[in-house]
Structure formats: C-alpha cells, structure tokens
Amino acid sequence: MFTRTESLQDFLRLYPIVSLIVAIHLGLYLLTILPIFPNYWFYEHFSGVNLYIMEGEIWRLITPTFMHTSFSHMLFNSFSLVLFGPALERLLGGSKFLFIYLASGVIANIATVMLEPLSYTHVGSSGAIFGLFGYYIAMIVFQKNRLSKENSQIIITLCIVSLIMTFIQPNINITAHLFGLLGGFLLGYFFK
C-alpha cells in the first residue's frame, strides 16, 4: 500500500492529484530560487501572514500549503505526500482526495490564524499531510475493514513518530500539525 513500485509514467497516470500537488510544490519552489522572477514576490503574496489574512487576504489560507522555505522542506513534504497520498487517492478518488487535502490544509491554517500572533508567518504542506494521517486514523477507527492490520499499524506508528518530531524539531508550526491531524480525522468521520 505504501511501497512505490510504479514507473514514473504509471505513477503520473494512476495518481494525478498527488502528482499535480508535488508538481506545484516543485514549481513554486523553483520560482522562489531561480533568478527569473524576484524571489521574494511569491513569499510576499502566497505565505500565510496572519495579519494579512485577518485583513481579508483569504487566499492565504490555501496558498501556504504549496509554499516551502527550503529544498529540504519541500522535498520532505513532497516525499511524504508521494508515500502516503497515492493509497488514499486510490481509495477516495481524485476529487474527494483533493478536497480532504485542501480542507485539512485550510483547517490547519485557520487554526494558525486563530491561535498564533498576528505577526506569525507560515508556509508548508505539513498541515494538509497531517490531515491525510488524520483521515487514515478515522478509517482505522470507523471503517476497520478498509485497511489491513499491518497498514493500520504503519499509519499509527508513523503518526506517533511525526507527532513526536513536531515537538522536537525547531521552527515547526505545531498548531498546523495538530489541527491538520484533527481536521483530517473529523473529515474522515463525516466524509466516509
């Protein structure tokens, strides 16, 4: 379920939503480092800046989900999506998967606006990725027959490790991780 053995061509065909999201991650990252555009423009206009969101720049509840601060940040989040997204995209279908992913990211960003200072700035897709974990946990709790015992154990273990790392690593939006997870779990409960 979480082992990738497809060719790149098959992966793109089988998991178009995951592929599109990863392409957006990579594309936006490249636009922030290549000297084609002023590098700061994308951060200035797409980052989640709580003050600007409160002043009505609502798109900043979605756009930070696709922005990353460094190559390692983008690579780790994209790798996590490639590892855990395809199985869920296959189970849910592309439209529902995209809804869960974006809704989890928005929930994480709304919580960040509500609980962090107005000066707080945030980027990264981890809130949405934690939302996928939350959705998987809801499946484990409410739809026991959809995942094997082995896959359920993998998800629970990785979720616990990811939560521990949330509190250990510096510069992590803890609020987004926790509320992304909670949002995904609630979405998994209501949208089975």
Rank of each mutant, 00 (worst) to 15 (best):
K192L: 13
L8I: 15
H25F: 15
I160L: 14
G131W: 07
D10Y: 07
S148H: 02
L12E: 01
S78P: 09
G93E: 00
S126G: 07
A87N: 08
L88A: 04
T63N: 05
S119N: 09
Y43G: 12
Y15E: 00
L92W: 01
V141H: 07
G85N: 03
G94Y: 01
P86S: 00
Y136T: 03
H177M: 04
I168F: 10
E116K: 13
L81N: 02
G56S: 05
Y29Q: 11
F142N: 01
I164L: 14
L163I: 14
Y135K: 02
T157I: 15
I62K: 03
Q9S: 12
L81M: 11
G180M: 08
I17R: 07
M165Y: 12
S47Y: 11
F42P: 00
K192A: 13
T166Q: 06
F84Y: 13
F76N: 09
I156A: 09
G184W: 02
W59P: 05
L163K: 07
F37K: 05
F179L: 13
P64Y: 13
F37R: 04
M67K: 05
T157G: 09
I156E: 01
N171W: 10
F179Y: 12
L26V: 15
F11S: 04
F11D: 01
I58F: 12
I129Y: 03
S72C: 09
I110D: 05
I62F: 13
M67N: 04
S47R: 07
M54N: 10
V49Q: 07
A23F: 05
F191V: 06
G105A: 03
L181D: 08
A108F: 13
G134T: 07
S80H: 06
M67T: 10
G56R: 00
F71L: 15
K192Y: 06
M114T: 11
V106N: 00
N145H: 12
S19W: 04
V106M: 08
L61E: 00
I164R: 03
L31W: 11
L12Y: 06
G27W: 06
F76M: 14
F71T: 15
G105D: 02
S95A: 13
P35I: 11
A128Y: 09
W41L: 12
I155L: 11
T32A: 04
S148F: 10
T32K: 03
R13V: 15
L20F: 14
R90E: 11
Y40P: 04
R60Q: 04
F142I: 00
